[in-house]
Amino acid sequence: MPGLRLHLAVAVRSFRRWSTYRAATLSGIFTNSVFGVINAFVLLAVWRANPGAGGYDATDAVTYVWLGQSMIMTIMLWGGGAPSDLAERIRTGDVALDLYRPVGLLSWYLAADAGRAVFHLLTRGVAPTVVGALLFDLRYPDGPLTVLAFALSVALALLVSFAVRMLVAVAGFWVLDSQGLTMTANLLAIFFSGITLPLVLFPGWLGEVAMVLPWASYLQVPADVWLGQRTGGALVGGLALQVGWAVLLLGATALVLRAAERKVVVQGG
């Protein structure tokens, strides 16, 4: 299938492009690790004061912190990645060239972002986890099935985050200055992904709502799968939540992209 091979090539090229920034990758790993240490001690203090907070134990909490540091770049929690390239091409008008390609924009950029994500998972995902494992007692998946479910959950996390980042980027077709939108999207991701504080510590109804928002797919669901907090029905439920948001948001992105293409064709950019 030529389409598949093309997308694979796009992903590989994207992987290589990111892998050229060696010093940046190393310094990023260092910084992620430092913040991992800080957050781990903060949560350890929380769980010392309340050993059962949020249904986690202290080991779960520390493991959550390190998983979070590993996910930041993999899913580009603070925005960026391939959708940023698209936003830039929309701004400069170069996107018109993309639209003439016989390949869909969505799958093209998804392939590029996937290549990038694999690079970040292998470097800035794995390395801080290793640092965390050396410094702290972590919880590990209790079997191959959990590992498999975690891998699936991470892939779904990437899909959801990709779709959200794409929606923001594509808005650039209509909004001249999408700064406000980008900013809002980043704030929501920082707060509701659980990177600042595990969603299990969010009080009352806010916690319940946060658990089903799209950003819960970014970190909370994959982490719960890894920690064994979700098994059986809850596991299926978590993955289903991610699949649901991925389908919904990717679908929305595809629709918006089609409208954008029509706009460019009719108005000539």
Binding site: V42, A45, V46, A49, N50, A53, G54, L197, L201, F202
Partner: peptide, 9 residues
Amino acid sequence: FIFANVPDL
């Protein structure tokens, strides 16, 4: 939010 879970840190 942390202090919603613990009396002191």
